[in-house]
Amino acid sequence: MSLLQLEGVSKKFGQVVVGEAITFQLMQGDAVGIVGPNGAGKTSLFGMISGDISPDSGVISFEGENVARLSPAKRARAGIGRTYQVPRPFEHMTVFENALVAAQQGARARGHKSYDIAFGALERTGLGPLANRPAGSLTLLHRKRLELARALSTSPRVLLLDEIAGGLTDLEVNELTTIIRSLRADGIAVLWIEHVVRALLSTVDRLICLASGVVVADGEPKEVLASDAVRFVYLGGKRIDEDAS
């Protein structure tokens, strides 16, 4: 049985199509990259999976249940973890408290267990030494790690990573991909939007290309990148201009 399955998911904001019959599935332990030009609907897709945006039509099943009408909080508790493209830590709380909130609410853990989960997530993302720092004082790299740690603290079965490598140096990207690979080895499925294709290729074994809300390619990363459809989206003519405007 697939872990996450989308069937004919569509969404329009006025005349702007951000999703048009999006259909794909994710098995347990899969690592899938999502690429596509700006405005292709990648972040909106995450919004629909995590519950921030409700789709106009279509089915989103998680572990066999349709979650398309559940609140974001319920989906987080069910096992869908998400990071934001621009990190949004609880700035007035410590790093540890950020993870603790997620462990107590998302993973429904209490007492010592919640502390263990939160601290484990911080250790895993290399934030252990910063646990008592106010989250508002963190640098970009550490904020991105905190996004990951907070999502991890909800004990997710699938992680939606939104451009987590964007804006980081090569070295920092390498550190993050190492963490993400280790999460995958633990059986957490990863769905990862990224413009840093090199980072993606080091981690995922499948690539989905979105353009104007449509899945134009889905398959082996190298094949997808080499396909005519993707080359057209990125390099060829009219379609890109429309997206840019």
Binding site: F90, E91, V101, A102, Q104, R108, T154
Partner: peptide, 24 residues
């Protein structure tokens, strides 16, 4: 308290708090 911590989290960013599983 845990509940107090939740209130602070929601006060900071209610959408992010929802993603962390909190019914804001």
């Amino acid at each position: 308290s845990g509940l107090g911590r939740m209130i602070r989290a929601v006060a900071d960013d209610q959408e992010a708090a929802q993603l962390s599983g909190a019914n804001y």
